[in-house]
Nucleic acid binder design. Structure first.
Length: 273
DNA sequence: GCGATCCTGGCC
DNA sequence: GGCCAGGATCGC
């Protein structure tokens, strides 16, 4: 469920809790561990100090006193919650850090689309991170490079391009729809058919949408909460997402829903060409 | 490059 | 009961 603004909001809500010593941890049998073992994750984390929290695209990196970091992806239904005091462990809890002072950090994920993995200092050491393109909010990503990365996939629809984390990382369904609306681009068009100017505008629109999303603390439509349990407010500002049969929020035209790659795309044909 | 698929839960 | 969900991968 969470996209870059939600992950960044979670990161910000939790990073001020560091450093914290992880005296022990709980790892469920069904924890979505990929490319490593439960044993190695346990080994990497138990008895270390959690020093900081970083983000790349939709991935969170728990940096500890050891060389290895925990790399967490929340998938569709993942949630990370800080608990000042222990509470009964809900269904679908996959990971819990037990801190010295009795507080805990809990990762739950009903659908198990999330992943837990490990990385050392070189991002290339982690298969997930190695596949990612530059983060959409990385200021060193210039329009020319973004355009070049997009143009490696000339026959891909622009919607799918935005969701392709290997081209650039962080956009999901909500912010992809919103960026296309803001850029005035029909989601069905192919990269081949877009001008450099349109791609530059699209990058700018995507960045704008993501920044507003962060400023609003993310989008809470169903169940997203930050690390301290706060809801986001971005749902009040979405122009097209989940508005089938209504007008855009700014009233410029009707919103329709189509299906691309088995996922909904909402857009306004009067604004998006 | 497209569509199916992993999984659970909530809503109609 | 069927459909849908803030994601990403893996066959064809």
């Amino acid at each position: 469920m969470p996209e870059l603004p939600e992950i960044e909001t979670i990161r910000k809500s939790l990073v001020s809790l560091t450093p914290r010593h992880i005296s022990d941890l709980y790892l469920s049998r069904l924890a979505p561990i990929e490319t490593t073992t439960r044993q190695k994750i346990r080994q990497a984390l138990r008895g270390t100090t959690w020093n900081s929290l970083k983000r790349h695209g939709k991935y969170l990196l728990f940096v500890t006193t050891k060389e290895v970091s925990l790399v967490l992806h929340l998938g569709m239904s993942g949630r990370l919650q800080f608990l000042p005091r222990p509470t009964p462990r809900p269904k679908h809890t996959h990971l819990e850090f037990f801190f010295d002072d009795g507080s805990r950090l809990r990762f739950t994920d009903a659908r198990r689309f999330g992943t837990l993995s490990l990385a050392n200092d070189q991002a290339a050491s982690n298969a997930f991170l190695a596949r990612l393109g530059p983060d959409y909010l990385d200021s060193t990503l210039r329009a020319a490079e973004y355009i070049a990365r997009c143009r490696r996939h000339p026959r891909l629809s622009v919607k799918r391009t935005l969701l392709h984390q290997g081209i650039a990382a962080g956009l999901g369904n909500i912010y992809a729809c919103e960026a296309l609306y803001q850029a005035g681009i029909d989601p069905r068009r192919l990269i081949n058919d877009l001008s450099d100017q349109e791609l530059t505008g699209l990058l700018q629109a995507a960045r704008d949408c993501l920044q507003v999303g962060i400023a609003q603390g993310g989008t809470t439509i169903r169940d997203y909460l930050d690390g301290l349990g706060h809801r986001g407010k971005m749902q009040k500002f979405l122009q097209v997402y989940d508005r089938e049969g209504q007008t855009t929020r700014d009233g410029r035209g009707p919103v329709i829903r189509i299906v691309q790659q088995a996922r909904s795309t909402w857009f306004c044909p009067e604004v998006q060409r």
